[in-house]
Design a protein around this nucleic acid. Structure first.
Lengths: 207, 207, 207, 207
DNA sequence: CATGAATGAGATTTCATTCAT
DNA sequence: AATGAATGAAATCTCATTCAT
């Protein structure tokens, strides 16, 4: 009985490992080439498996794409929530939120590239698969919006539209990475993106 | 000689008209479906010409795409420059810059959709065709950066990184439209995106 | 105006010619290899066009298949009706019906092979595309059944189930060709399939 | 020694049981979906074993298909022979032959569906695997042909081509089931297919 | 200049078959 | 003997691009 349980666990572990492997490979490829220019073959090669194997785990290129994006996104948001919860005070919470995002983007370049390159796809057109990602984005923004709303109530922040403000913060973060990634700005090694965003935003919203 | 000149002019005018027609159609289609899901046939149909005709004016789908984006982008930037030049004082110049962008996005939804949806493509990967758009973006940011740098020098703005700050402003504008377009926020009819962006930014940067 | 009309006609003619060409090629290939073992490429090659061209005329392999079958089938049935109408008396009508089927099968081996090989598909499972063929079959059987019903009323034929009897006749015809085609029987050059079927059937049903 | 024999026998019994199970499952699946649309996985699932297990007993999908068909076919023919042998007189022998076929088809719908749907495949193209089925068919027809030949010699039947006539009888039987299965005719509960075929055929051939 | 039929490279996806466990 | 994850050949279908009319 123990054996069978172990067997099950082992198999599950293997499956999860494979899934993670595939999604990481997918982020790499999608981040490098964009959705359209990436092929299933490239992802399979990057994951070190055969084309057909991908279809044992995901049922289409689309599904691979959105899972690759959302799985990491979900982690980032969960981590962000935790850190924001732990922090005390509006300013600290905002700093925590920023810190998590910067850390995630810095530590997983593939994810960042993918997020930047294909972000337009989830405000733009698209099928059903993107819905989960939209929900994550919405959820993440709503959470931050609550922090801002509380700050406004306490009089720490100027009154305003919390949700829109929260999204603005998220987009500012994205913008800094986009600059760097595209090579258009922010290349100076002394440029501290995190501080830059915080200062601009905090001065922009504080009472 | 006059005749030939006139003929040439007429032909040129016709050509330009056709080109503009095609690019407008392309913006409509690309904005609605995104690059990958848009086909040459759809664009041809929207432009009211045959598929082959497109290739008399542009040599590839890519070229159509980037021209559709950059031609309007160029107009927007030229107009922005003019208005910024005309305005006096840092604050007024920033307001002018914002006003132009909002007007362009509001008045040409197809362009806005296209810009939002495929923006990732020009910080991300891509061929040679996107270079002109990048240059426009850079140029536009540089111009605004100069305004900001002057404001900093005059002590009206807190000292900082002018180029990055300029890009942050541009991205904030984009963010507001992205919110609306995606239906994730900013739907409240009382929400004034232009004022929102200005307030956040101006408070964020002013001395 | 004449020109445009001519142009239209010419184009239409060309299109029809192409369609006929494709369907003939399809019958050849499907008849030779069966549906599953036939590939789009084989059909394209047999038709002397490129793969993609097939999709300008038909939207799927399935559609090609059923059109290839039904277009010729329709001709056969229309021709059969005509001949049956022209004939006088039950016996003559039955003979006419048989004659037409034998002629069609003899003159277009590809069609016959396809009909024989894949007949099971339209009594068995299958998608929407086979419906038209079923209808043709039904229609054809119903027409013949009427002839038989009249014969029964006149007392020329033993009373019975006209529709089932009609189908039995059609299947007998098919059976003779199946024998020959498969090489299992009917190879003797003196064997006259048409007469064989008529005699068996006529004796089987006559009063 | 006894033990080893018994062991062997037991193993053989198990193997045969497994084989029969697989073939029954295969008939079910092939009959329901046709050859092409049936997958090894579906058959394995229907048989309650894993995909790989099928390959321990049969070396390919094709082999499974033809074995599924021929094993039952063989039983039907063997049974038919027995009954025909037992019957006395041409008419009784024909009746016996018909009765067996109707019983087999009625009692094993999966077999019937498979036989009907894919019959075309064994008069049409196909690999080596279908040969045994062809032989069975041939054998079965030859046996019946002998009965008919004897009937002709005795003057009970009109002289004719015994083999072709035998096949015609077999095809008439098939036709009745095809009608019903396809829903095109023979649905009336009072319609007695066996009697219908016998009457048509007997009147058709008797002297 | 304009057309749109034709092309064929290339993408996604399926599934019979293998083989390490 | 049994399994089912992995494979990769092969099939269908799309669509940017060309070119004869």
């Amino acid at each position: 009985m123990n054996m069978s349980l172990e067997g099950k666990t082992r198999r599950q572990a293997l499956t999860e490992f494979r899934e993670a492997e595939i999604l990481a490979a997918a982020r790499k490829v999608f981040g490098e080439h964009g959705f359209a220019a990436s092929t299933i073959e490239m992802i399979a090669a990057a994951a070190g498996v055969a084309k057909g194997t991908l279809y044992l785990y995901y049922s289409s290129k689309d599904e691979i794409f959105w899972n690759a994006l959302s799985s990491r996104f979900r982690e980032m948001i969960a981590c962000g929530k935790q850190e924001v919860d732990r922090a005390e005070g509006t300013e600290a919470k905002i700093r925590a939120s920023l810190r998590v995002r910067f850390e995630f983007f810095r530590s997983d370049e593939a994810f960042m590239r993918m997020y930047l390159t294909e972000f337009g796809q989830f405000c733009g057109p698209g099928g059903l698969h993107r819905l989960p990602v939209r929900e994550l984005y919405t959820e993440s923004a709503a959470y931050l919006a609550q922090v801002l709303a509380e700050g406004m109530q306490k009089g720490e922040l100027r009154p305003g539209d919390p949700l829109e403000t929260a999204m603005a913060l998220m987009e500012l973060t994205k913008a800094v990475f986009a600059m760097r990634f595209s090579g258009l700005a922010g290349q100076n090694p002394e440029f501290d993106g995190e501080r830059f965003v915080f200062n601009l935003f905090w001065n922009g919203v504080k009472a």
